[in-house]
Protein backbone atom coordinates (compact mmCIF):
# COMPACT_ATOMS: atom_id res chain seq x y z
CA UNK A 1 0.00 0.00 0.00
CA UNK A 2 2.87 2.35 0.79
CA UNK A 3 4.69 1.21 -2.36
CA UNK A 4 8.08 1.11 -0.67
CA UNK A 5 10.68 -1.47 -1.68
CA UNK A 6 10.31 -3.51 1.48
CA UNK A 7 6.71 -4.30 0.64
CA UNK A 8 7.31 -5.26 -2.93
CA UNK A 9 10.16 -7.54 -1.95
CA UNK A 10 7.90 -9.29 0.49
CA UNK A 11 5.23 -9.71 -2.18
CA UNK A 12 7.61 -11.07 -4.78
CA UNK A 13 9.08 -13.50 -2.32
CA UNK A 14 5.75 -15.28 -1.91
CA UNK A 15 7.31 -18.64 -1.16
CA UNK A 16 8.56 -17.40 2.19
CA UNK A 17 4.96 -17.17 3.32
CA UNK A 18 4.65 -20.91 3.38
CA UNK A 19 7.15 -21.17 6.16
CA UNK A 20 5.47 -18.85 8.62
CA UNK A 21 3.96 -20.04 11.89
CA UNK A 22 0.57 -20.64 10.39
CA UNK A 23 1.85 -22.70 7.48
CA UNK A 24 4.21 -24.92 9.44
CA UNK A 25 1.77 -27.51 10.76
CA UNK A 26 -0.12 -27.43 7.48
CA UNK A 27 2.86 -28.26 5.31
CA UNK A 28 4.43 -30.97 7.42
CA UNK A 29 1.82 -33.74 7.20
CA UNK A 30 1.70 -33.50 3.44
CA UNK A 31 5.47 -33.65 3.19
CA UNK A 32 5.26 -36.82 5.31
CA UNK A 33 2.84 -38.38 2.85
CA UNK A 34 4.88 -37.26 -0.15
CA UNK A 35 2.15 -34.93 -1.27
CA UNK A 36 -0.47 -37.62 -1.68
CA UNK A 37 -3.76 -37.46 0.14
CA UNK A 38 -5.15 -40.79 -0.98
CA UNK A 39 -3.79 -44.28 -0.81
CA UNK A 40 -2.53 -45.99 -3.94
CA UNK A 41 -5.82 -47.73 -4.75
CA UNK A 42 -7.65 -44.41 -4.38
CA UNK A 43 -9.95 -45.55 -1.62
CA UNK A 44 -10.47 -43.85 1.69
CA UNK A 45 -9.91 -46.08 4.67
CA UNK A 46 -12.80 -46.10 7.09
CA UNK A 47 -12.13 -44.47 10.46
CA UNK A 48 -12.94 -47.75 12.21
CA UNK A 49 -11.17 -50.07 9.76
CA UNK A 50 -8.84 -52.18 11.90
CA UNK A 51 -5.14 -52.30 11.01
CA UNK A 52 -3.28 -55.54 11.71
CA UNK A 53 0.49 -55.78 11.44
CA UNK A 54 2.43 -58.87 10.52
CA UNK A 55 3.70 -60.58 13.66
CA UNK A 56 7.25 -60.82 12.33
CA UNK A 57 7.21 -57.23 11.04
CA UNK A 58 7.97 -58.62 7.61
CA UNK A 59 6.55 -57.96 4.17
CA UNK A 60 5.57 -60.58 1.57
CA UNK A 61 9.21 -61.17 0.58
CA UNK A 62 10.12 -61.78 4.19
CA UNK A 63 12.11 -58.56 4.37
CA UNK A 64 11.93 -56.78 7.72
CA UNK A 65 10.06 -53.50 7.84
CA UNK A 66 13.19 -51.67 9.04
CA UNK A 67 14.96 -52.69 5.85
CA UNK A 68 12.48 -50.68 3.78
CA UNK A 69 14.19 -47.34 3.27
CA UNK A 70 11.14 -45.77 1.67
CA UNK A 71 9.27 -45.77 4.98
CA UNK A 72 9.16 -42.80 7.35
CA UNK A 73 9.38 -42.97 11.15
CA UNK A 74 5.60 -42.49 11.20
CA UNK A 75 5.13 -45.58 9.02
CA UNK A 76 7.22 -47.57 11.46
CA UNK A 77 5.25 -46.23 14.43
CA UNK A 78 2.05 -47.48 12.84
CA UNK A 79 3.49 -50.95 12.23
CA UNK A 80 4.81 -51.13 15.78
CA UNK A 81 1.62 -49.95 17.47
CA UNK A 82 -0.72 -52.12 15.42
CA UNK A 83 1.46 -55.15 16.01
CA UNK A 84 1.06 -54.68 19.75
CA UNK A 85 -2.70 -54.65 19.29
CA UNK A 86 -4.82 -54.48 16.14
CA UNK A 87 -6.48 -51.08 16.17
CA UNK A 88 -8.57 -48.75 14.09
CA UNK A 89 -7.40 -45.94 11.85
CA UNK A 90 -8.99 -43.47 14.29
CA UNK A 91 -7.11 -44.96 17.24
CA UNK A 92 -3.83 -44.84 15.37
CA UNK A 93 -4.42 -41.17 14.55
CA UNK A 94 -5.38 -40.26 18.11
CA UNK A 95 -2.62 -42.35 19.67
CA UNK A 96 0.17 -41.12 17.41
CA UNK A 97 -1.22 -37.58 17.35
CA UNK A 98 -1.40 -37.50 13.57
CA UNK A 99 -4.27 -36.15 11.49
CA UNK A 100 -6.63 -38.83 10.17
CA UNK A 101 -5.84 -38.02 6.55
CA UNK A 102 -2.15 -38.59 7.10
CA UNK A 103 -2.72 -41.93 8.82
CA UNK A 104 -4.92 -43.03 5.92
CA UNK A 105 -2.15 -42.44 3.43
CA UNK A 106 0.55 -44.02 5.59
CA UNK A 107 -1.57 -47.12 6.20
CA UNK A 108 -2.25 -47.28 2.46
CA UNK A 109 1.50 -47.36 1.82
CA UNK A 110 1.94 -50.13 4.38
CA UNK A 111 -0.87 -52.20 2.87
CA UNK A 112 0.73 -51.81 -0.58
CA UNK A 113 4.09 -52.91 0.80
CA UNK A 114 2.45 -55.87 2.56
CA UNK A 115 3.44 -54.95 6.12
CA UNK A 116 -0.12 -54.57 7.38
CA UNK A 117 -3.57 -55.65 6.37
CA UNK A 118 -6.82 -53.85 7.05
CA UNK A 119 -10.26 -55.20 7.85
CA UNK A 120 -13.26 -53.43 6.42
CA UNK A 121 -15.76 -52.59 9.14
CA UNK A 122 -19.05 -54.43 9.00
CA UNK A 123 -21.92 -51.98 8.65
CA UNK A 124 -24.72 -52.89 11.09
CA UNK A 125 -27.00 -53.64 8.13
CA UNK A 126 -24.66 -56.46 7.12
CA UNK A 127 -24.66 -58.17 10.50
CA UNK A 128 -26.35 -61.56 10.13
CA UNK A 129 -28.62 -61.05 13.13
CA UNK A 130 -29.06 -59.17 16.39
CA UNK A 131 -26.78 -61.42 18.42
CA UNK A 132 -23.79 -59.11 18.33
CA UNK A 133 -25.91 -56.13 19.30
CA UNK A 134 -27.40 -58.05 22.23
CA UNK A 135 -23.82 -58.81 23.26
CA UNK A 136 -23.01 -55.10 23.02
CA UNK A 137 -25.88 -54.30 25.36
CA UNK A 138 -24.85 -56.97 27.87
CA UNK A 139 -21.25 -55.82 27.80
CA UNK A 140 -22.22 -52.17 28.23
CA UNK A 141 -24.35 -53.05 31.26
CA UNK A 142 -21.46 -55.03 32.72
CA UNK A 143 -18.91 -52.21 32.31
Amino acid sequence: MTGDDGHRTADRDGAARWYDDAAGPVVRPYAMTRGRTRSADGSELDLIAVVIADEALAGPSGAHVLADRTLSPEHLDIVEVSRTRPQSVAELAAGLDLPVGVVRVLVGDLVDAGFVRVTRPVPPAELPDETVLRDVIDALRAL
Binding site: L47, I48, D54, E55, A56, P60, P86, P121, V122, V132
Partner: peptide, 15 residues
Protein backbone atom coordinates in the same frame (compact mmCIF):
# COMPACT_ATOMS: atom_id res chain seq x y z
CA UNK B 1 -0.16 -61.17 3.31
CA UNK B 2 -0.87 -64.33 5.25
CA UNK B 3 -2.42 -63.67 8.60
CA UNK B 4 -0.05 -65.10 11.17
CA UNK B 5 -1.40 -63.77 14.42
CA UNK B 6 -3.74 -65.57 16.73
CA UNK B 7 -5.25 -62.76 18.81
CA UNK B 8 -8.72 -61.83 17.66
CA UNK B 9 -9.31 -58.99 15.28
CA UNK B 10 -12.08 -57.06 16.96
CA UNK B 11 -15.41 -56.33 15.37
CA UNK B 12 -15.66 -52.54 15.45
CA UNK B 13 -18.91 -50.63 15.86
CA UNK B 14 -19.45 -46.92 16.26
CA UNK B 15 -21.90 -44.56 17.86
Amino acid sequence: MTPTRTDPVPLALKL
